[in-house]
Design a protein around this nucleic acid. Structure first.
Length: 268
DNA sequence: GAGGTTGTGCAATCGCAATC
DNA sequence: GATTGCGATTGCACAACCTC
């Protein structure tokens, strides 16, 4: 998810994402009518993954076929339950099904292209009397096996659903993956982050947004700092708050307990 | 000319009260 | 508890301007 698989914009995006770093490449193509799946649409995949993990934990039989109640799905994702929210949920399902991803990530030792949609299919279940019985959806086999075999979906962090900005959400995923429990934290140049994000914004706009996030310390549990390298390139450095020096203004030991609980939840 | 900052448009999202 | 209506707010993308 740290790769540019989703649009970070809330507006409809049709322009494809092209990403290539070293041997790894990703191309995401959107349906002209529906637009590209967004990072908010990806919440549905988190819901699907959590349903599969929960069912397995209860010893229930699982399959790529899932049935969801829209109201419960919206609650899970921390959304409202207004008519607009239901419409957005169905629009999101459409975008996930219509967005086409081609990549060579997760191909093991072989280098070959893998093409897929985020959802194989979905449909609203409406009875003869017009009553709604939820939503049926089928997740792709790679997603299904990835969730059950290799824990593709990490613990669903409630903090994540509270992040409203697309760049915020994406950066939080990057920071959680890379900073983790690294004592010295982790860092990327802003051009690197811009490329990784697939953002349609200009580098200068993107850099401005990142600076604002660092200024606001917008990522819960992590301390963000920006400094300029000798060659003039800006660097974003991030560290888990509980790993900062005790006299550091961003030090907060309480985050250690919260994140440990989340990680234990992920690990089972 | 490149990169940074500010302002604007507009779709998406939110807050809250009312209604079913 | 779930759904609806509506005004307010938010935030992404873009353009214009500024600074170096």
């Amino acid at each position: 998810m740290e790769r540019p698989f989703f649009s970070l914009a809330k507006r409809k995006r049709v322009a494809p994402i092209e990403y290539r770093v070293g041997d790894i490449w990703v191309r995401v193509e959107a349906s002209p009518s529906r637009g590209m799946a967004t990072i908010w649409d990806a919440d549905i995949l988190l819901w699907a993954g959590s349903q599969l993990v929960e069912a397995r934990a209860k010893g229930l039989k699982t399959s790529p076929w899932l049935r969801g109640v829209p109201h419960q799905m919206l609650k899970f994702m921390g959304r409202g339950t207004r008519p607009d929210d239901y419409d957005r949920l169905f629009a999101a399902l459409g975008r996930l099904q219509a967005t086409n991803v081609t990549t060579n990530i997760r191909q093991g030792e072989r280098q070959r292209a893998h093409q897929f949609s985020w959802l194989s299919e979905w449909e609203r279940c409406i009875g003869r009397d017009g009553t709604h019985h939820g939503v049926d959806l089928v997740v792709p086999n790679w997603f299904y096996s990835g969730v059950l075999e290799s824990r593709l979906i990490l613990a669903v962090d409630p903090v994540y659903f509270q992040l409203t900005g697309g760049i915020e959400r994406w950066l939080y995923r990057v920071v959680r993956k890379h900073a983790g429990w690294q004592g010295a934290g982790w860092q990327f140049t802003l051009p690197q982050l811009h490329t990784k994000s697939g953002s349609a914004a200009r580098l200068s706009d993107f850099a401005f947004d990142i600076r604002q996030l660092a200024k606001r310390q917008a990522l819960p549990g992590y301390w963000l700092e920006i400094f300029r390298r000798s060659d003039g390139v800006d660097i974003l450095h991030f560290t888990h708050r509980s790993l900062l020096a005790a006299d550091h203004p961003g030090f907060d030991f309480s985050w250690q307990f919260l994140d440990r609980r989340l990680m234990e939840g992920a690990g089972g």
